[in-house]
Design a protein around this nucleic acid. Structure first.
Lengths: 189, 189
DNA sequence: GAATCTACTTGATTCAAATCAAGAACGCTA
DNA sequence: TAGCGTTCTTGATTTGAATCAAGTAGATTC
């Protein structure tokens, strides 16, 4: 059990106290490939920490799915917009690979952050990181051409191309699978 | 003086106490048209409430500016990513029209939210709204074609076209000014 | 009031990515 | 191992927006 929580330390150092409190509030869940963590229209009532596996976040669309983000082990998953405001989510989150996830309910998070300053810091840190991530994502979508987005992703996260089905990566880059395939042929040789 | 703060009540009801504390921590500043509220590379050290006027947020780019957001009276302005993490901003914020802005420093905000639960609620509300706004913006960029983004903006915020120079609107829609001009000719007749 | 600058429009052309179409490679299951 | 579905690739064609280019309208300045 303790082993499972060890990874959380990787993103933020915790006191033993805080660590124990966190363990006691957590619920460990498993998601099968293609199982939904969060469905559009539903309120996001918990935040998850991915122990192992991967997920993707996407917007439903009549024609095509619009994938906006990937989550791997040691990252935090959920819709902050829905979670904080307790309103229906406009995003979907679904497992790409089988996942082991440590889930924290809103109630538990509120208790934990009130009682443990370290955990309040951790929570603030996670929010910060999310804001930064979001700004970078917007920057990429607005400033860079599809081709440049591809090159940047290849440079910064080459492992994504190994682990994630390419049509999801194409969606993330906001291009068609055909175009991604051509980029790969052109630049990877 | 009190008159100036009256608008803050519009986004969140405050107790008289909280209201007074807020007033005492604020600094009222004016931005001339084209004056920067925040420049790329600089840490965002305060959050502003726009009393009057308008601003835009954009990402610098070698070829073209990539405009990502507009702010009008009664809205909150700043880079949360930079403000919270105290790291250099990757966005610029600049006045489009002359602005009257109520500014709050990080230090003051921390004090205010600690001492007044209502202000903590207000701050949480602002963060929430920001998350929601961001998700919607991403959705628009990922799911909708340029033409549809134009139509949606026209439907939801027609006043933007009256108040904001069209080349900024074009940048916001992630299209060239020429394309925006053609859409307008096509759909407004 | 002429000159300059910026904002916006309109037209012709180019180009990059989407679409349409078909087939290959791979895993899964029966 | 045969059959099926999904993923990925490759080619031909179309298309929507960018680019290039020129001109008009307004505002600002000298």
């Amino acid at each position: 059990m303790k082993r499972i929580f060890y990874n959380i330390q990787k993103i933020f150092p915790l006191t033993e106290d805080a660590f124990d409190a966190l363990m006691n509030s957590a619920r460990i869940t498993h998601f099968q490939k293609n199982e939904f963590f969060l469905t559009e229209g539903e309120v996001c009532t918990s935040i998850g920490f991915i122990e192992s596996g991967s997920m993707r976040l996407f917007y439903n669309s009549p024609d095509r799915e619009a994938c906006n983000d990937f989550f791997f082990e040691n990252s935090v998953v959920g819709s902050f917009a829905s979670f904080l405001s307790e309103t229906p989510s406009i995003v979907n989150i679904v497992a790409i690979e089988n996942c082991e996830v440590i889930q924290f309910s809103k109630q538990h998070i509120e208790q934990l952050t009130e009682q443990h300053p370290t955990l309040k810091q951790l929570s603030d840190f996670i929010v910060q990181e999310h804001f930064i991530r979001t700004e970078k994502r917007e920057e990429a979508l607005l400033k860079f051409s599809p081709e440049l987005r591809f090159k940047n992703l290849l440079e910064e996260h080459p492992k994504i191309f190994k682990r994630i089905p390419l049509h999801y990566v194409a969606s993330y880059l906001n291009i068609t699978p055909e175009t991604l395939s051509r980029y790969r042929a052109r630049f990877l040789v």
